[in-house]
Amino acid sequence: MRTGSLSWNQLRTPAVWGVLLLAAGTLTLYASTYSVILITNILLYVILTVSWVLFSAPTGYISLATAAFFGVGIYTSAILGDQLPLPLVILTAAVASFGLAAIVGALTLRLKGVYFCFFTFGLVELIKHVLLWYEVSVTGLRGRFVVSADHITVYYIILAILAVLLLTSYLIRRSRVGLALRSIGESEEAAAHAGINVSAVKTMVFALSAVFVAAAGAAMARRWGYVDPYIAFDYLYSFTAVAMAVFGGVSRFAGPILGAVAFAYMRELLITRFPYIYMLVMGLVLVVTILFLPQGLVELATKAPWRRLRGPREPA
């Protein structure tokens, strides 16, 4: 099978990504409005999931704060939407969320993982309360209207955010920072003794992962038209990111993407008519995956019969 110095096996992954990128980049030329909106939603969940995996998978620190960063993005868009152009709004959302995550990280990440988990779990509720109190006592508003954008613009922004996120997480996995993160996950003390500034690395990557979530929130708010603190700061976003990542499997690069696409599609089918069933199924899938398939969906793929013939692939 060798042709010159490059084999098909080496070219396969870049080829798949190239085709996917081409298909996604030209989607609005051939797809219906419905498909574009559907795929925007799916890509949104891929962003939430991959951002979560970026920090939580290698380190083992479970962040329950995705919804908080998403809400920060949404509210940035709602407050600044009619004053700044969209790219600046997204940038502001990203910076605000980076700052928030850096503060949370600096407070909790020098301590045991349980403090981080407790703190991030309540963060959504805290910001929701601060916002509600502010809106009621200062501005007198309950919700806000957001300047709307057409679905094609939102689609391309979401696609661009996802592309940057995938590239970032690919590069981090292969860099010294990625190595540092994994060694923190395996043994924090050993990592510290090896000369890694453990708290700084954790805080920086956590803050970086928040940036993409907030940017996606700022873009998506344009599609909704109206938001209030309860819509913007919803636990379900945190939960969804965690469930999708675990379901897909975090040990490989493609796992969370696979999990997010599968789940987001199911969500589209169920959420409007059977919201309780959707959330129930998510909960069940999360528990069952942890119990019976700890490596997630990608483990099944690597165990498939056609894989065995070629022998195992090295993890990416």
Binding site: G60, L64, V246, L280, G283, L286, V287
Partner: peptide, 18 residues
């Protein structure tokens, strides 16, 4: 610790939606 946390996160949604 992390796996049991994830499982209890799943339980939260199972119990709440039931």
């Amino acid at each position: 610790e992390s796996n049991s946390l994830l499982a209890s996160f799943g339980l939260l949604f199972i119990i709440q939606n039931l």
